[in-house]
Design a protein around this nucleic acid. Structure first.
Length: 195
DNA sequence: ATATCGATTATCT
DNA sequence: GATAATCGATATG
């Protein structure tokens, strides 16, 4: 599922328009046997969405600062999910930049190198993309991301992914070494290149 | 480009 | 009471 989600759009419907980013980097988290997964120690109030039916948003708050967005991926009763690590901004860029705390004028000013580096900072990272789409546990945890009625949704627009790179996951110590991070080869919006 | 460090709080032991 | 699926600022090369 982590591989299959690459290239799909993650969209947020707002009263002012639709925000959209292309999924360019993901990580898979399993259940028992994957000590890095929140589901590893069993079902709790926090992680219960991971044990529910597939296609639902699991949002957690980390380091006292950031929200991170996942989608449950396995049949009801079996824990597992995919963490969204990076998006390539597609539409609603000005709104996403504003949500990230940038000056809107700076993003739309000129297409020089400084502006391009700002564009990369909008949604390349799990905490960043959550902030850009205003994802919080309170608002979004448990939402059905496969439903057309949802304001937080995964959409297939037909985009074809050429080549995928597989590496170990970022920022974990337990169960490191598993090759469960996936990203689109050559995409400049991936959160980082090295391990 | 790479490394180090502090911030800040929900969640679980 | 300790920990954490991160980020941004700062320092250094």
């Amino acid at each position: 599922m982590a591989r299959a989600l690459l290239g799909k759009l993650l969209i947020r419907k707002t009263p002012h328009g639709i925000l959209a980013g292309r999924i360019v980097e993901t990580e898979a988290y399993l259940g028992k046997g994957d000590a890095a997964a929140h589901a590893a120690a069993g079902r709790t109030a926090r992680n219960s969405v991971l044990f529910g039916p597939p296609g639902h948003a699991y949002v957690y708050f980390i380091y006292g600062n950031h929200h991170c967005l996942n989608v449950s991926c396995l049949p009801d009763g079996v824990p597992g999910g995919v963490l969204f690590r990076a998006l390539e901004p597609v539409s609603g860029i000005e709104q996403m930049a504003e949500a990230r705390g940038f000056e809107p004028q700076l993003v739309w000013g000129r297409a020089d190198l400084k502006q391009i580096s700002l564009l990369k900072k909008i949604s390349s990272g799990p905490g960043r993309l959550s902030e850009a789409l205003k994802v919080t546990r309170e608002r979004d945890n448990g939402k059905n991301m496969a439903s057309a009625r949802s304001d937080l949704q995964i959409v297939d627009d037909g985009y074809r992914v050429r080549r995928v790179i597989v590496t170990t996951r970022i920022g974990i110590v337990k169960s490191a070494g598993h090759l469960l991070r996936y990203f689109i080869a050559g995409n400049p919006f991936v959160s980082r290149r090295s391990l």
